[in-house]
Design a binder for these strands. Sequence first.
DNA 1: CCGTTTTCTCAGGAGGATTTGAGTCTGGAT
DNA 2: ATCCAGACTCAAATCCTCCTGAGAAAACGG
Lengths: 225, 225
Amino acid sequence: MLKIGIAEDDLKIAELLKSALEENDYQVLTVANGIDALNLFSSESFNLLIIDVMMPGLNGIQLCKHLRENALQTPILMLTAMGTIDDRVIGLEAGADDYLVKPFHLRELLARVTALLRRQPPIETKTAHKLYFEDLILDTYSKEVSRAGKPVELSAKEFILLELFMRNPNRLLSRQFIAEQAWDISFETGTNVIDVYINFLRKKIEKGFERKLIHTKINMGYILK
Amino acid sequence: MLKIGIAEDDLKIAELLKSALEENDYQVLTVANGIDALNLFSSESFNLLIIDVMMPGLNGIQLCKHLRENALQTPILMLTAMGTIDDRVIGLEAGADDYLVKPFHLRELLARVTALLRRQPPIETKTAHKLYFEDLILDTYSKEVSRAGKPVELSAKEFILLELFMRNPNRLLSRQFIAEQAWDISFETGTNVIDVYINFLRKKIEKGFERKLIHTKINMGYILK
DNA sequence: CCGTTTTCTCAGGAGGATTTGAGTCTGGAT
DNA sequence: ATCCAGACTCAAATCCTCCTGAGAAAACGG
């Protein structure tokens, strides 16, 4: 089921779009302002985004730019009440893939939605799923890790832990935080699993290398730098 | 260098487009009628096609349809002098990716060209119904599979499972993901069907071959590589 | 209806992954 | 320099995933 996200502050139009798209077997989620849209579109993945230019808070152009700067690849269809060339061009240059001027015919909207979805690659690009830190590369797509080009075999937990560090480079991570993120435990247990796993990781990614990556800050936690 | 093909019978407009695009570092080839366009666009490969709707011989809509029926995936931008909704929709439904109404501003044309080119070219080509992975071939039309030229008999479920892997080569697929895609179950059942079917598949496509294709990543899932 | 094929469940066991706990080491404070 | 809480290490214990064969249940075809 293809999933479409709509950012539109005019509830009447939002409802109209939603029902028209749902009738065509799309799953639809709507938000009514730019801030909510940024949060939703950044956290959940969609096959297509429909964004109104005029919105309170964060407007469509700004939203679009933010999303693209965040390496989001989802096709974006912009809606606007103003049909001047300049606004349309600005929208496209901000990273939108198509532009529709209100008022529009539902049939044209559907045709454009179909056109945009048709050329969507079946799977997202691999590079978008890679995390880099110096000579460390972590591929969240294939779940493979390498350092200086040499593959490193990690277990599931080790992988999760390293991914956590690579998503937060140069940030000090407390044991509490690591436990919550990687082990789903928030309470205090007398365990030392984290220490042990840091040890496992170090053995696998630092052994044989001069440069250390994971550093201990006594009484604080660990940091990748 | 990105290559753009233009089909436009009005030589003045054709020249205008050509020079504007060349100024932006695209390589441009133009033809002045639908028949020539069909020949050129079928034999040479382009990154983008710009097609005028009104052309002698074969018009833009027909040309577009022919190209798409021939499994051509290149993005197509349609040009027309008529701006009625119906014509625009017909163009999009014929397989065009975008539509521009004459007269247009060059700046808007360039923005749309950029937007179309930014989208990633689909992986599928003319042999869109066949999936390849090393010496494995899966034909989604005839539902036949072979390895190293030797036919492999698969049941329906086995086929679906293998197709899923072949559409996501080198990607780690979690059991959760496989369950959703191939079995339509999203909730947690205590079943091990997936394991069993992986086993079936391995027996059929790996038996007698040195090279293993489906690899287990404990606590993560399976990967075709 | 019966036999065949396909799909799925179940249970046992091997082996790797994860966790524990105890002993050792270390860096910072006194 | 000494001390000690915190950090590290290692082996052992435990957990649990994955594989496999057997067979039940369901779907299919004649």
